[in-house]
Amino acid sequence: MKVLVMYVDEFGYTPAQKNLEEAEDITEGAVFKDSIAAFIQVEAEDEEYDVKSREKKLVNHLKWTARKNDCKKIILHSFAHLSDSKASVEFTKELFDRAEKRLQNGGYETAQTPFGYFLDLNIKAPGHSLARIWATL
């Protein structure tokens, strides 16, 4: 799994193009302030592990990043552009849903960008240490 995490002053999206036929129809966008935006690519190799172990690894990384940026809001964004390897849609969506629930149980405000869409993004991110962190999990 590859993860690019950014602390953002503002992160907004608008659905641009549906790229997964079975995805629900979404026309509205959203805007988040003072959040952690996590660009996540789940890789085929992740499916060799139990989804729960991948969930734990991801959530621990996101919590660490949030603490370093004194932030309690986390946005999960499926971003299949960090690696050539891609996990199945089913595994990826399950991992996102489980990670979101675990983060909520830990007291974090969470959101997921629409799964199965290309999105127009608007990002305002400060340029300070630990505002952008890339990791292989």
Score class of each variant (00 low, 15 high):
residue 64 W to D: 14
residue 92 T to E: 01
residue 125 A to V: 05
residue 70 D to K: 06
residue 12 G to H: 08
residue 124 K to C: 11
residue 24 E to T: 00
residue 133 I to K: 04
residue 31 V to Y: 08
residue 37 A to L: 06
residue 59 V to R: 02
residue 66 A to W: 12
residue 38 A to K: 06
residue 56 K to I: 14
residue 28 E to S: 13
residue 93 K to C: 15
residue 36 I to C: 03
residue 128 H to T: 01
residue 72 K to N: 14
residue 50 D to P: 06
residue 109 E to N: 00
residue 25 D to N: 15
residue 136 T to Y: 12
residue 123 I to E: 02
residue 100 E to M: 13
residue 119 L to C: 09
residue 62 L to F: 09
residue 24 E to R: 00
residue 10 E to S: 10
residue 35 S to A: 07
residue 112 Q to G: 09
residue 30 A to Q: 10
residue 9 D to W: 00
residue 106 G to V: 01
residue 4 L to V: 05
residue 130 L to T: 12
residue 135 A to C: 11
residue 4 L to Q: 05
residue 133 I to L: 11
residue 83 S to N: 09
residue 57 K to T: 13
residue 9 D to G: 10
residue 137 L to D: 10
residue 60 N to T: 11
residue 75 I to S: 01
residue 116 G to M: 01
residue 55 E to C: 05
residue 26 I to M: 11
residue 120 D to W: 12
residue 28 E to T: 06
residue 69 N to I: 03
residue 110 T to P: 00
residue 82 L to D: 01
residue 73 K to P: 15
residue 106 G to K: 04
residue 114 P to C: 05
residue 126 P to V: 01
residue 1 M to V: 03
residue 106 G to W: 07
residue 87 A to H: 02
residue 70 D to L: 08
residue 59 V to W: 01
residue 3 V to G: 04
residue 52 K to S: 07
residue 9 D to V: 06
residue 37 A to E: 06
residue 29 G to P: 11
residue 76 L to R: 06
residue 122 N to T: 09
residue 89 V to N: 07
residue 65 T to I: 13
residue 88 S to W: 05
residue 103 L to N: 02
residue 82 L to R: 03
residue 114 P to D: 04
residue 58 L to Y: 00
residue 62 L to V: 08
residue 113 T to N: 08
residue 137 L to C: 05
residue 60 N to C: 10
residue 112 Q to F: 00
residue 8 V to E: 13
residue 16 A to C: 06
residue 99 A to H: 02
residue 97 D to G: 02
residue 33 K to Q: 15
residue 20 L to F: 12
residue 96 F to T: 01
